[in-house]
Design a binder for these strands. Structure first.
Lengths: 329, 329
DNA sequence: TTGAAAGCGCTACCAT
DNA sequence: ATGGTAGCGCTTTCAA
């Protein structure tokens, strides 16, 4: 069932049918109604390929994350999807994994599918070495980076001042004499770097000389963290606060502490990052830095909208995180 | 840059270029290499629309879930995406929400995008009233339902014997004299019905007369559950086991119990459903029924593959859940 | 207000 | 092994 069939049934030309479908002005009310009725009756839907061929756009945006089974990314993707939907765009979901060459391959794939834009979710898309593949993609379609910052033409970044958040966290801890801070970071993510910068700056300002023994670098795995923290405790390393670059890591630490009879927050304060659903699963509940995923995503889509409308959106949008105080500090 | 340009540069016809692109046999090695070199050099990628126009397929599958920010769905979507990717298919993600008319609208949308198939994730897509919209979609493309069972032509179902799982759970509880079981279910999902059936059957077989006061129906919200369970405890209702239709609900109950000084599992055993990441966040960790999301998703994609290959896959695939024993029972 | 016809870029069939 | 060419279904310009 195509536009020709409709045209024949309505006794008009395909041009007229096309006009009706696309809501053009120059069609008489009578003709419009007739065509619309037939379209309705037949249940006709235009062929997207044919349409795309002419227009060069298929109203789709590629959304990339390393894996959507991660809480943070899942939430982000959910928000982006719903926001884009309101603009009439579909989401092609790509879970790329951590490997750069894979990320690059996915971006190529999306370009070949002629997506209208690409949204990269997570600082993890900001490579420590080269970001040439992003630059390359950005020559074809706008690229929006969520939770990362990159200075590349046609690339727009939305992120949260995580450095500042950690900085203030350290100051707050020092203010209540929690100066022996165990810092746990996920090795994989780029944002770890930013957070660490905030941490050291905070330590500097508070005259805390942070021992290397109090920095833990781990993969994103609750059990692994727990193990490591247990080792630390058993080795006699002392600390009265834990700051983790992700809730899951904080949770692992919390469990390790509790299993050794240490009280949270009395003996040790624990603070996570992301303000995920996990925070409400432990007792005491986990204090955490809310890095405003939803806001970032909404901003990202808003930027896309501006681009579509031919306006010039800001290249960088910085949001302020918010500390969510719960039982663990 | 299109196939004509490539043809011109290579000094061959577009037909030959097309053959090279599609890896057809009947091209001389020399010609193939020449064309490939030029394609590489120019960085040419075929236009998907033009291709789709001819083939009627765009190598995309629509994946629908109510919201991907939910742990269960996120994990499912992640698995589906990665499996489909290996087959060369992209995923169009649709988070529909619970509303039937919205679900229906999304399915129409996907059909108009000419997806090659649709995968519905979650029993929630099985409406209690009419599933006409699914039947309608299934007339156009194969529909695969994960964690639900529907008898509709061109619709394939993959699900887990949740009824059996709950049935055996009740028996196991009864066997250790945990006969006062608080049953908590999510009102929104269809699978609640199945689970409840297993529960009552188990009670029947064990001569447990289950009091209506021990059935809690709640939305999917940990805090809400906690409230309800607290009310129950404070009202003096006694029970020595909790079975919940989802981990999040079980966790809410667990927190309520602990906050009233009840010990888990000594005083009350708690069992969740889905074996999600949440199970490992509490202390004690949550025992849970693993309903094999990953397996279901893999099966679903395997079915799709069979369909593509023109084979006749089974209409219903039933998996056996597995009880994951942890601290809470 | 309406219609005719020229693309859009590709696939696949038919010739050679 | 290669080329010519007819669609695929739509949008859009140009004429009427």
């Amino acid at each position: 069932m195509n536009i020709y069939d409709i045209a024949k049934l309505a006794g008009v030309s395909i041009a007229t049918v096309s006009r009706v479908i696309n809501g053009k002005e120059n069609v008489s009310e009578k003709t419009r109604r007739k065509v619309e009725r037939i379209i309705e009756e037949i249940g006709y839907t235009p062929n997207v390929f044919a349409r795309g061929l002419g227009l060069g756009s298929i109203q789709m945006v590629g959304v990339l994350c390393t894996t959507v089974s991660d809480l943070f990314y899942a939430r982000a993707v959910a928000t982006i999807e719903s926001e884009l939907r309101t603009l009439g765009y579909d989401v092609i979901l790509c879970c790329t994994g951590n490997d750069v060459s894979e990320k690059s391959r996915y971006m190529q794939l999306l370009l070949s599918k002629r997506v209208d834009a690409m949204i990269l979710v997570g600082s993890i898309f900001q490579e420590r070495t080269s970001n040439e593949h992003i630059a390359q993609a950005a020559t074809q379609v706008p690229v929006i980076l969520i939770n990362g910052s990159l200075d590349i033409p046609n690339t727009y970044c939305v992120f949260c001042d995580e450095e500042g958040a950690v900085y203030h966290l350290v100051r707050d801890l020092a203010a209540v004499n929690r100066r022996d801070i165990l810092y746990i970071e996920n090795t994989e993510s780029y944002s770890s770097l930013t957070k660490w910068r905030g941490f050291t700056r905070g330590c500097g300002d508070c005259n805390i000389s942070h021992s290397p023994a109090l920095k833990l670098q781990v993969p994103k795995d609750g059990d692994a963290v727990k193990e490591k923290v247990l080792e630390l405790i058993d080795a006699g390393v002392k600390f009265n606060a834990v700051v983790a670059s992700e809730d899951l890591l904080a949770l692992g630490a919390l469990k390790a502490l509790q299993s050794r009879g240490l009280r949270v927050p009395d003996d040790v304060a624990v603070i996570g990052f992301n303000d995920s659903i996990l925070c409400k699963c432990s007792s005491p509940e986990l204090s955490s830095v809310d890095n405003k995923v939803d806001d970032m995503c909404r901003r990202a889509v808003a930027i896309l909208l501006e681009l579509i409308q031919g306006r010039k959106p800001p290249t960088r949008t910085v949001l302020t995180p918010e500390f969510k105080r719960r039982g663990s500090f």
